[in-house]
Design a protein around this nucleic acid. Structure first.
Length: 191
DNA sequence: ACATCGATCTACT
DNA sequence: GTAGATCGATGTA
């Protein structure tokens, strides 16, 4: 498996969102490895009203303005965390939200953290997968080219990908920037 | 200093 | 299908 390069994240955000499908998200914690195959993403662009950074830099969204290939983790609705990967050059605040993965390794840890047993209930949502994989605010800004949290390519081809309206936002709902492979539709959030 | 509101999830009907 | 939980970040005063 090859860890994704800095150049991978430097590219066009929508292109990165599509190319991330089928890649493997890995979190190493206490000698253990928790991983899952990415099957649902959403793109957030700089001039996009739904993007946290569309109205300038704040303490929360600063990571989006930084180097591509770093994590942007934020808290919402009380106890939930969501994971994004930062794209584009320094100063261009764009990112891809990871919305769902298929559990691959560390499944027992995920089941314990989620208090659920069925594989489809572990990582089928942006805040579910962060809970299952132990990803919290302390990982905000971390470099995805390091060894703690990273994304790798094992050569899997996911086949045809569909684009749909993004979920859970109240503005810019006309943009079809939510992506998932047809053959993994049963593993994504909602519908 | 204070009021508002989520890039959500779960439980319940 | 609907509502409640839950709290940090953000905007307004």
């Amino acid at each position: 498996m090859d860890k994704l390069s800095r150049d991978f994240y430097l590219a066009d955000t929508i292109e990165v969102a599509v190319k991330l499908l089928g890649k493997i998200l890995v979190h190493r914690i206490d000698q253990c490895e928790i991983s899952g195959r990415i099957v649902e993403t959403e793109a957030y662009l700089r001039d996009d009203p739904a993007c946290h950074a569309s109205r300038g830099m704040t303490a929360r969204n600063a990571a989006m303005f930084g180097e591509p290939g770093h994590a942007y983790v934020y808290a919402t609705y009380g106890n939930h965390y969501c994971l994004n990967v930062v794209t584009q050059p320094v100063g261009v605040p764009e990112a891809v939200l990871i919305r769902a993965v298929i559990p691959l390794s560390g499944v027992e840890i995920m089941q314990a953290k989620r208090n659920r047993t069925r594989l489809q209930d572990l990582c089928s949502g942006p805040a579910k997968l962060t809970q299952a994989m132990g990803i919290t605010l302390e990982l905000n800004g971390i470099d995805l080219l390091g060894d703690r949290l990273f994304i790798a390519d094992d050569g899997t081809d996911v086949g045809p990908v569909v684009s749909r309206p993004r979920i859970g936002i109240r503005v810019a709902t006309e943009k079809l920037w939510r992506f998932y492979p047809v053959k993994f539709a049963q593993w994504v959030s909602k519908r």
